[in-house]
Design a binder for these strands. Structure first.
Lengths: 341, 341
DNA sequence: GTTATCCGCGCAAGCGTTTGCGTAAAGGCG
DNA sequence: CGCCTTTACGCAAACGCTTGCGCGGATAAC
């Protein structure tokens, strides 16, 4: 006869027994239910406090079919953008009594699928995800949809229409960036863009083109190159741009990390930064302020705020304040921050 | 008569009904229990696959009193050290089928307590924590101990003996760092150390002192200053060091961020880095490689490996391979990485 | 005094799974 | 053929909590 040692943790049942009342009364008393008399409420609460009673959340989760947990899937926490975004997510989640389950994909699609699977099994109430840069297949998110687990994408958003998303309008930021370079007299402006399937890449490209058009300049497709955001990829992108007949005097890079790599490459080529070649970038990461040659300007994407917005959207989905099938794409404005004139 | 719509998710019960067998048989079949015939096993599995059955983990968690979740509490994900450490934690946790609950304290003791409380309620199986730099009271961890939730501290470890911990032996790294400076001819070496209650600060200080003693040099307490790791704190620490009668020609800073701030301050004072003043630091963050004046050397603390080690320790605690009350402090060696000779 | 109303509480079902134990049927052995 | 051991499965309890419903008793309304 094995008797479980009850792990010491007092239950609602114990309180009931000691007070000679029913468990339902105890439960309701602890919830301040109106149908319980003040005397009993007080007695229950007193004993609960004395016993150091703590509600067994796993039981509640199970019973209610809700875990008050949201899964966060993102590529790389070591990127400042994401570590800042996660703070926005975590802060608003915690202040709404939600808890946060973490998974990094490291930009690996297989791992992304595993994590989603694991989160689904964990019965998270919803997910916030920023997809990996190589992810082309979205079956795992389709599974979530079928399981009725709402998903809010942010920043790195798949190019689908029937999704909830929060992202930054990079088009306007890019226009500002190119404007800035044009005003400084640059005429041959290269762009090291990201993988094509990312919406963010498309926005950058169209922003670039629109800015040129605005100034009645011809758009030369040669000047935009898609890279894979690795240091090596950036190097060959730079090599390509510098090999063009038209002399590139400025480059818009996908983000500050790419910019830093590009700067390193330019230095190796003995180019003088901000003279021979000028860089403008995205993300406006704090570290770039410490660096030797920060980009002349950077498009701020407000990661913390994006995280907040995504979480709020997910919460309203979870609370039923917003129908699951009403897909909305919240767009935040980006803004060019000028470091160097 | 309200009938719950069963949310679509098939249960073990449904499978049982459809196959005209009992739930226990289904459960066992899915677990490949030996007492179930091969025929029934096959039938059960086939139907489970067909129905897209997925085990309700919350029910299992509840039933088993285990959540296969570990809580991670750390100060700031935006610090490269921690974002790297969390990868080590997450990777080994996931590969052991554990899942990871995240909380950032932002170095706020109150918030730290809240998060621990929340994790306890969430019934995490164990915690991995790096304490905030201002935390002086450890009641919240005492609560965890009473709840029999094992905790493994890492990197920022409280100065107690009865805890499980993984940390880096900074003393040896510091000795190497000071050695390095002494060999370059520096004789008046300042140190911007962290808050006194951190073990890490003490180790840095003793390493510093031992290195001097090794070279038969006198230790001048004036040269070590405890700062709060903020930019402002670093500024005033630098101001203090530069105001000393003895001319400080090298400074050992608490970490790369402090180093970067200190460099900025030095530049403002028109000092030439690596000539008038040389910096040596800790953490060896990748970004410092991009910066204009990276520290001449940095003590690598192997955050990823620390994360792994901490997780493995926690797992062995959870599996009962290691008794809860056998407190061990795993110490990893640090190593000086020289950037500039 | 009778009836409707409300307050305070208990009963019991149910959430999905695991697991100790009981038990038929089948097979082996002497 | 009787007995014992497997094999293959079912029964039911248990995990801790929530909640619809029912029910006595007190109070108010007429």
């Amino acid at each position: 006869m094995r008797k479980v040692v009850s792990s010491g943790q007092p239950t609602i049942k114990e309180i009931a027994k000691r007070l000679n009342i029913s468990v339902s009364t105890v439960s309701r008393a602890l919830h301040d239910h109106h149908s319980i008399g003040l005397r009993t409420k007080a007695r229950v609460k007193a004993l609960a406090a004395e016993l150091n009673y703590e509600r067994n959340q796993t039981a509640v989760y199970f019973q209610q079919g809700k875990t008050f947990t949201i899964g966060i899937l993102l590529p790389e926490l070591s990127e400042a953008f994401f570590s800042s975004a996660i703070s926005g997510i975590e802060d608003t989640a915690y202040s709404n009594n939600y808890t946060v389950l973490l998974g990094q994909s490291h930009d690996d699609e297989a791992r992304e699928k595993q994590i989603i699977q694991s989160m689904k099994q964990h019965r998270v109430d919803g997910c916030i995800v920023s997809i990996g840069k190589n992810t082309r297949n979205y079956d795992h998110f389709e599974m979530l949809r079928q399981a009725r687990i709402p998903v809010v994408f942010f920043d790195r958003v798949p190019d689908l229409h029937d999704i909830h998303a929060v992202s930054c309008n990079l088009e306007s930021g890019t226009i500002q960036a190119v404007d800035f370079l044009l005003k400084k007299g640059h005429r041959v402006i290269g762009m090291i863009n990201g993988p094509e399937q990312l919406v963010a890449s498309k926005e950058r490209a169209t922003g670039y083109i629109k800015a040129l058009r605005k100034h009645r300049l011809k758009y030369d497709p040669e000047l935009i190159v898609n890279a894979d955001l690795t240091a090596a990829g950036t190097d060959s992108a730079m090599e390509y741009l510098l090999s063009l007949k038209r002399k590139v005097t400025a480059v818009v890079t996908f983000n500050d990390y790419v910019a830093m790599d590009a700067v390193q490459y330019a230095l190796k080529r003995k180019l003088e930064i901000n003279k021979d070649i000028t860089f403008v970038s995205y993300a406006n990461t704090p570290v770039s302020g410490y660096t030797a040659f920060p980009p002349a300007a950077s498009v701020e994407q407000f990661p913390y705020e994006q995280g907040q917005a995504a979480t709020n959207m997910l919460l309203s989905l979870l609370n039923g304040e917003h129908p699951l099938n009403d897909y909305t794409n919240t767009i935040m404005e980006s803004r060019l921050v000028i470091h160097d004139r």
